[in-house]
């Protein structure tokens, strides 16, 4: 239902992730997909989680909902949601939270919906489960939700099967499902990556306005910095399972501190201005089975010194609300 009206003694902090670690035990060794990640989220805040493929951002998202399947397991840390630890909850309690107070949008709309059931049935499943709506009531609400996300002629389309929709439409359906219960938190895992560029912008705009209207919070997980810059309030940048920079959107984008962030921003092609060579970040992501002792970015970093190889840097605040995990703070701006 609507967000809790009880006075919570939490300073408006909805979610706090403390030192979270999620490990995968494979034949070749242990992969620390998430390695000591911490961040917090206020009510109504939109947080962007940025990083390249394999940096652990999706796994972080799944960990919050405790949807990690073996051979993975949450190995350490804590996740506090609305003042309570999610890691201490029973599975049944988690089922009541999932899709209800915290919902998730998956990356690939083509495979997220069950192909043998109508979307009406799939929306009403959530409505029945968490809101207790049935029959006519549920049907009405389902149509309403479809209209809200911008699906034309929802009255007839509600009876369609997923394969009768395009990818963009399916993702809208998924957004509708995730908003059905007016959740406090939405975790959007690369919601537009699998879609055409033209559709991406529309969808993000729609998602943004719906989230704001509901006063929900959102964790927007993406590799696309430009996407996140327009939409989120704050940003954390992840690399190799760790947070390497955090701050407000404005701060991180206009005054990036970590060399990796600088590199990411530098590799975005500019639409206006002179045409320059696209700057790349040289080197490759380290082998997850063989992580270096010091800073993980060291092998690729232009500013690396000998201390970087030996010692992992601590998170330091370089201006208010803007922290970076690097031995040499205040890196070059764009």
């Amino acid at each position: 239902m609507t967000m809790t009206e009880e006075a919570k003694n939490d300073n408006g902090v909805l979610l706090e992730v403390r030192d979270l670690s999620t490990h995968f035990h494979t034949f070749r060794g242990v992969v620390k997909a998430v390695d000591g990640v911490s961040f917090s989220l206020k009510r109504g805040e939109i947080l962007g989680v940025v990083g390249e493929s394999g940096c652990g951002k999706s796994v972080t998202g799944f960990s919050v909902l405790r949807l990690i399947d073996p051979p993975g397991r949450i190995a350490g840390g804590d996740i506090i949601f609305e003042g309570e630890s999610l890691l201490k909850k029973s599975e049944r309690e988690m089922e009541r939270i999932r899709g209800n107070k915290i919902s998730m949008i998956f990356q690939d709309p083509m495979t997220s919906l069950n192909p043998v059931y109508t979307i009406k049935r799939q929306i009403c499943e959530t409505l029945e489960l968490h809101e207790g709506l049935r029959g006519r009531e549920a049907h009405k609400r389902a149509v309403e939700l479809l209209r809200l996300v911008g699906i034309p002629s929802p009255e007839s389309r509600v009876n369609y099967y997923p394969h009768q929709f395009s990818g963009g439409m399916r993702q809208r359906v998924i957004i509708a499902i995730s908003l059905a219960t007016s959740p406090s938190l939405i975790i959007a895992d690369e919601p537009t990556t699998a879609l055409d560029v033209t559709v991406q912008a529309q969808l993000i705009k729609r998602l943004y306005s719906l989230v704001r209207k509901n006063n929900s919070s959102m964790i927007l997980i993406t590799h696309d910095l430009s996407l996140v810059s327009g939409v989120s309030d704050n940003i954390i940048v992840m690399y190799c399972g760790r947070v390497i920079e955090r701050g407000s959107s404005e701060a991180v984008i206009s005054r990036p501190a970590h060399p990796y962030t600088v590199g990411l921003l530098g590799s975005i092609p500019k639409m206006a201005g002179e045409r320059e060579m696209l700057r790349q970040i040289s080197g490759m992501v380290p082998n997850p089975f063989d992580m270096p002792a010091g800073c993980a970015f060291c092998p690729r970093c232009e500013m690396a010194q000998s201390i970087c190889e030996k010692e992992y840097p601590r998170m330091r605040e370089i201006e208010e609300g803007h922290c970076v995990c690097c031995h040499f703070a205040g890196g070059r701006g764009l």
Binding site: I97, R98, G99, N100, S103, F106, N114, P115
Partner: peptide, 13 residues
């Protein structure tokens, strides 16, 4: 399949 994980994410028992 993804849709199974999605169903779990919806809180389905």
């Amino acid at each position: 399949q993804d849709y199974i994980k999605f169903a779990k994410a919806k809180g389905v028992s």
